[in-house]
Amino acid sequence: MQIALFTIFGLLAIAGALNLLLQRHPIHSALSLIVVMMSLAVLYWSLGAEFLAAAQVIVYSGAIMVLFVFVIMLLNAGEEEHTRGSRVAAIAGFPGAAAIFCLLSFVFLSERHTFGATRLGESVNGVGSNILQISHVLFTSLLLPFEVTSILILVAILGAVVLARKEL
């Protein structure tokens, strides 16, 4: 059953990603991206990371993509047009994406012993909740990066306030 889940949602993610590139209208692209996010959440879930899956749905599909859709709706963005730049992007994009994919998979495969591994279907098979472990790691060994990330977000918020203030 886990294999079936993985196949269905893996294919769905790939189909969504392709649709994202092929659609001409930004709102259809944004909706395909949501499909990708949701399928990724299901994949996380089937790997036993149920907290990550829920966070993926709440943060990415529920907040960030809603803002994307909101901005597209607000600007009333029309269909995209093909320019010179888009042809260059199409020519350079595929080899570039392939190169990044190869590099990432090489790093992950060669360093898999340090990253640790998980098996398909851990949460479905009834292994306990991993929220405790995540929070333990976040507040002990990863405390500094965690706090630095939150400062990064704070800086972004301040920047947004400064930009919005100018127009008042």
């Binding site: 949701m38 149920e50 907290f51 829920a54 966070a55 749905v57 709440i58 599909s61 529920g62 907040a63 809603v66 306990g128 909740s129 929220i131």
Partner: peptide, 14 residues
């Protein structure tokens, strides 16, 4: 589900 509350929040946000 052991994260039932989060699931409800997630579905509401969808």
């Amino acid at each position: 589900i052991n994260i039932g509350l989060l699931v409800i929040l997630g579905i509401t946000s969808i």
